[in-house]
Each structure stands twice: as structure tokens, then as C-alpha cells.
């Protein structure tokens, strides 16, 4: 084994160890989860909002550093912050008798954790529709950038389970990576008819299937936590299941034949057809099925992933680490296939 081979294999494992440690020890940014009381009437009221994740109150911060603003459509309503604790803010608010909309969103501006937001936090009963009177309006505050240290972004519903991003998503990437290798190998097998390419295709699909099943399991667990069901009809989930079914069909097709030349030829043909149909399916599905999955219309849930440097610093190593592990398993399987072939043809 030459040195570069040792480096990437050990490197992959070390990266994954880093991902595990970082992924499980990084705290979550604070996020507002609950308002009380949720129903208000015009007049003076005391409201409080609670948060999860890291505390948003740090050392040497005072009440004046925090600002709570309620939004009714375009109008901003000012409040007076009365008390701050690690996970709770209490404020007094004077609600006018006219409001653009009875639903109020809450914005909490913090000195070190940026702006926390809770949509439809309060509902005002018995308020007439109209513009907020001048005396009640809050000046538009400057949006502060979060100054938090290394921490993962808070997402409603997802919360701490955001760490699954480091397992679930890279497993899919790894699967598509080896399935791509399998597709290219099958094309080469059809062109040249060499059994060597068939060994590659078989090893790739077998490895890819393992990672596909792992991706399904991690995805299903995540769906149970965030959406409340083990399985939902969703383009990504359906696409994932079909991928696993297609390649299981490939393995069954191989097992049904025993003539080496025929196995190589027919399974390569099927693999090429299946891969192309899979690409078509992954294009068709999202257009015609409703989605809860991130990255689709009406679900901006994960947009801040792209922006969050903390998550990025763990996510990219995770992709590389899982990819390396997957490629390692693939190469072992390939060498096994070659030795087996060598022994059987002597």
C-alpha cells in the first residue's frame, strides 16, 4: 500500500471523527418558541416570550441592549423590555385600538445573538382595522448580525435535530457518487465487454445500496421528529425509495444468472437504463408532488444553511469524510470481486 492510499483512508476516518465531535458538541443558537399570553386585547399588557438553545443573555449585558418589537403587517409596535433571563424576555406593551392586522409577529433584537423571530406570536382581539396611531409606533431598528461563536442555526421544528444534516445528507451524496461510478463502469462495460468493468459496476451498486438504505433510515427518523410521520409522500423520499428499489432489482437480476459474460452484459444494460430513468424521475417528481422537504417552493426552512459558517465548517468535512469511507468500501469490494474472479477462472 503506498502512502497516498493510507493518507486518504485514515484522513476520511479522522474527518468523520471531527464531524462526530463537532456535530454533537456545538451548541444551538437561540430561537423563540413560545409566547404568553397568546391572546391580547387593546390596552396595557405584559407579555413574555421563551426561547430554546443557547441563552441569549450574556455577561455584562443590560436591559437597554435588548429591544422587542411587534409587527402587524407593515406597522411596527413598540414595547418596553421589563426583564431578561437566559431563556425568557418579559415586556410591557400598549396595544392600540386600531391595528392593520390582528396577528402580531415578534422580533427580539439581542446584542450578541442577532434578531430572533417568532411569527404570529400574538393575536389581538377586538381591534379595529387601520393604521397604528403615531404614539404606538416603534422606530425601525437596525438589524444586528449575530455575534455568536461556533453554533448551529436554530430552525423551527428541527431544533437540535439539525445535527442529522451531517449524517443524512452526506450519505445521499456518497450514494450518488458511487452510483455515478457504477453508471460510467456499465457504459464502459458495454463498450469494451471487459469483465473488469463489470466488477466495478457491481461493487459500486452494492456499496451504494448500503448507503442508500442508511440514508433512508436517517431520513425516516428525521421525518418522524420534524414532520410527525415515519414516511410522507414527498419527492425526495419517493425518489430515494425508488433508487433503492431499482438497484435492488439490479442485484436480483445479477443473482438470477450464472454465466459471467451474460451477467456483465445484461446488468450493464439494465444499469444504464435504470440510471437514466432515475434522473428523469428525480426531475419529474418535484414538479408533480407536494414537498415538505427543504429546498423546495414554499419551504424556505434550510435557506440559512447556505449562509451559516458554523454548519458549513462541519458539513463540508462530513461530505468529504463519508465520501472517502464510501469509496474505501467500494474499492475493497472491487478488489474482492477481482480476486474471486481470478481464483474461479484458474
Amino acid at each position: 500500500m503506498n502512502s497516498w492510499n493510507s493518507v486518504w483512508k485514515i484522513g476520511g476516518i479522522v474527518l468523520l471523527a471531527y464531524v462526530i465531535v463537532r456535530g454533537f458538541s456545538t451548541p444551538l443558537q437561540p430561537g423563540l418558541v413560545e409566547a404568553s399570553p397568546t391572546r391580547l386585547s387593546p390596552g396595557k399588557a405584559t407579555v413574555s416570550l421563551s426561547a430554546v438553545g443557547q441563552p441569549f443573555l450574556r455577561d455584562q449585558e443590560t436591559l437597554e441592549d435588548f429591544q422587542l418589537v411587534l409587527r402587524s403587517e407593515e406597522g411596527l409596535l413598540k414595547t418596553q423590555v421589563l426583564d431578561i433571563s437566559e431563556h425568557r424576555v418579559t415586556a410591557s406593551v400598549n396595544i392600540p385600538t386600531v391595528l392593520p392586522s390582528p396577528a402580531l409577529d415578534a422580533f427580539l433584537f439581542t446584542p450578541s445573538s442577532g434578531t430572533l423571530f417568532l411569527g404570529n406570536a400574538f393575536f389581538v382581539e377586538n381591534a379595529a382595522e387601520g393604521i397604528i396611531p403615531a404614539g404606538f409606533v416603534a422606530p425601525a431598528p437596525d438589524e444586528a448580525a449575530p455575534l455568536l461563536g461556533f453554533s448551529f442555526p436554530y430552525q423551527p421544528n428541527i431544533m437540535e435535530s439539525i445535527r442529522n444534516l451531517l449524517w443524512h445528507v452526506p450519505m445521499w451524496f456518497a450514494m450518488f457518487f458511487v452510483m455515478g461510478i457504477g453508471f460510467v463502469a456499465s457504459l464502459a462495460q458495454l463498450r469494451t465487454g471487459q469483465v473488469n468493468w463489470d466488477h466495478r459496476a457491481e461493487a459500486a451498486v452494492r456499496t451504494g445500496l448500503v448507503f442508500g438504505v442508511l440514508g433512508l433510515v436517517t431520513g425516516s427518523l428525521w421525518a418522524r421528529w420534524t414532520w410527525g410521520a415515519w414516511w410522507v409522500s414527498d419527492p425526495q423520499l419517493n425518489g430515494a425509495l425508488v433508487t433503492v428499489l431499482l438497484y435492488s432489482g439490479y442485484m436480483i437480476l445479477r443473482a438470477a444468472m450464472d454465466d459471467d459474460e451474460r451477467v456483465g452484459r445484461l446488468s450493464a444494460v439494465y444499469n444504464v437504463f435504470a440510471f437514466i430513468m432515475l434522473v428523469v424521475l428525480l426531475m419529474v417528481l418535484p414538479r408533480y408532488t407536494e414537498s415538505l422537504h427543504p429546498g423546495k417552493d414554499g419551504n424556505p426552512g434550510f435557506n440559512s444553511y447556505d449562509l451559516d459558517n458554523s454548519l458549513r465548517a462541519v458539513f463540508y468535512p462530513a461530505v468529504i469524510g463519508w465520501g472517502a469511507l464510501c469509496y474505501w468500501i467500494y474499492s475493497l469490494r472491487l478488489r474482492m470481486n477481482r480476486i474471486e474472479h481470478h481464483l474461479l477462472t484458474q
Binding site: 419517493n238 432489482g249 436480483i252 437504463f273 435504470a274 417528481l285
Partner: peptide, 28 residues
Amino acid sequence: AVASQVQSAGAALSAVLGLPLLLPQIIL
């Protein structure tokens, strides 16, 4: 055509190979 080349294939093989491939068509 693929399944016909497999001597030991029953009707199940076409179904196993075919049904996942037919999903885009069925959805549309």
C-alpha cells in the same frame, strides 16, 4: 427483453425490474 435473456426468470423478475422504472410514467 432483459428478462427474456435470463433462463430462470419467472414473471416476478419483469415486475421487480419494471415497476420501479414505471414510476415516472405512473405519476404523470
